[in-house]
Write a protein that binds this DNA or RNA. Sequence first.
DNA 1: GTAGAACAGTTTTTT
DNA 2: ACTGTTCTAC
Length: 673
Amino acid sequence: MLEGLNEAQREAALHEDGPLLVVAGAGTGKTTTLAHRVAQLIGRGVPPERILLLTFARRAAAELLRRVDGLLGRAALDRPASSRVWGGTFHSVATRLLRQHGERIGLHPGFTIHDRGDSEDLLEVLRAELELGRGKRRFPRKATCLDIYSRCVNARAPLDGVLARAFPWCSEQVDGLKLLFRTFVDRKAEQRVLDYDDLLLFFHALLGTESAGAAVRAQFDHVLVDEYQDTNALQAELLDRLCPGGRGLTVVGDDAQAIYGFRAATVRNILDFSARHPGARTVVLAENYRSTPELLLATNRVIAQARERHPKDLWSRKPSGERPELVTCADETEQTEYVLARILERREQGMDLRRQAVLFRASHHSLHLEVELGRRGIPFHKYGGLRFVETAHVRDLLAFLRLAENPRDLLAGTRVLGLLPGVGPRTARTLLEPVQRAGSFASWEDGARVPSPARAHWTALVALCRELAAPTPPTLPVQLHRIRAFYAPLCEERYDHVPARLRDLEQLEQLAAGFADRGAFLGELTLEPPRSTQDLAGPPSLDEDHLVLSTIHSAKGLEFDAVHVIHAADGNIPSDLTTGSPEEIDEELRLFYVALSRAKRHLSVTFPLRWFDRPAGTGGRYAFAQLTRFLPPEVASAFELRTAFPETARPALPAEDAFLLPEVRGALRALWN
DNA sequence: GTAGAACAGTTTTTT
DNA sequence: ACTGTTCTAC
């Protein structure tokens, strides 16, 4: 079974029960190695259901287990490993185990889960209630408040230190924040609601109790963690409790690809693993099976600029190919034209669009390109950026489901009631108080005091809630259908682009058909929302070829024959929005490295010299960009230097760009189509 | 208390 | 340019 593995991979696959760190450089066969290790464990007699596989995305776990099934061959036919191994993200596994054992730490098993937007909304409500920020000094915005809170929880760090280190401009508001966070915690408990941070925190707490902790530990013999470089301090402590002394613990990752520091992930976890687990075996995978030597020369040089890392130069036996190119473009239009020309040229040569990708730092960096793709009718899927489930109408619809699932969820209730004309936060709260006390909608049946503009809708709403919250509710698609019938007219009152929004809701109804029950549906949408609009249409259709557009973050773990990294200008990579600390700059460097190392054969890095910048106050202006600082001359020499269209000496500020903004807006609207 | 209008501040990556 | 917040007229 082990043929085809190199020595290091084999060592990792055959390792027994002690703590194991696999440092797996980009493209070094990490998934293959993990799959072999799982298959070895099963072959050695470990029951699949006693293996826990923690990955960054559920899809990664599924892909890995599919390969395990393949390795096990006939032995797996009857009961495939893929259906028995515990797999998923930390958050989804936490959810399952908390539903199973949470009552032992006083957690109600019917809890619902708040996503980021919900948590922000709750913080906003509480801030208003507590009258914070009434004074002269501005109080941090809700998103910042949540970032601060979240960092405290995930980094296991007290508020004062977090403020001083990461949010110094908020330090003055420390008392207000303390009050806000105390109330936030209490309020979530009353509502039987957990947010992302709570899932980890309570999982950690569960493992810390004597009997429940032992029960969970006894469920698993082996825990394997993928993308370990992107775990945070809380997750590391959680693993300590799950695998005392590191027994049965395997972690796999690459410190050179740590890109989630903004989410409190710390590269220290992987750098310090051996110190934390005395006797740990470290295996380094350095033979690259992905990229040509020319590309590796370039990517090795880029990452060599990092300050601290597990040093490893990747090498490859692949045949020689073309050098990567570094292309200077006069402006964004040229960049788009150049990238498109190259992509179409390769398609002519037989490389499908799906084998090619365009990567960028921020979601909006691809708008210009999207417009052009749309105009030429070239199909593409975009990953990253604003998601379907974050749009207002989808959140409205889901609020009905959440309220039915958990009538104590005040946020869902406020959102639903707020849809009625004449009902604002105040009225909603009054109406929801008895519901929260009783856990049912009985108080609405007989003469609740409803403002007159809302009366016309009231009877229908009460009937709807009663039906959805009944002991045996209709099937999920029927539930969604009923909600849509009630919601459609209200939606028309409130929003633009109603037909597109209603179509989204129909799609949601179809998506719901695949789920056993409401709780599973809501959990899935919260923990693993569809990553591109095309994902909603079901499994990716194999018939239509499409180009991949992706943020660098969302491209983690993927590979493509040809990769174009666009907007590689200082200010974008590294982003101007970082505070400029050496740690943050290093993370941006790793991000750039992740982008470059996705490529198998062709790599181009482009940047526009002049682009339309929109600083505050001004109506926008052209700014002059410089090449990213991550490609100084000694690194850039690994690239073929080119100018996109040397023959077109463009006049300054071409007027044709004036037509672009309306088109970009059009593209934005198309996001809802 | 709600809803619409006027104003002000800020802009990334995501479980 | 857009979002979020505050102000003001119902």
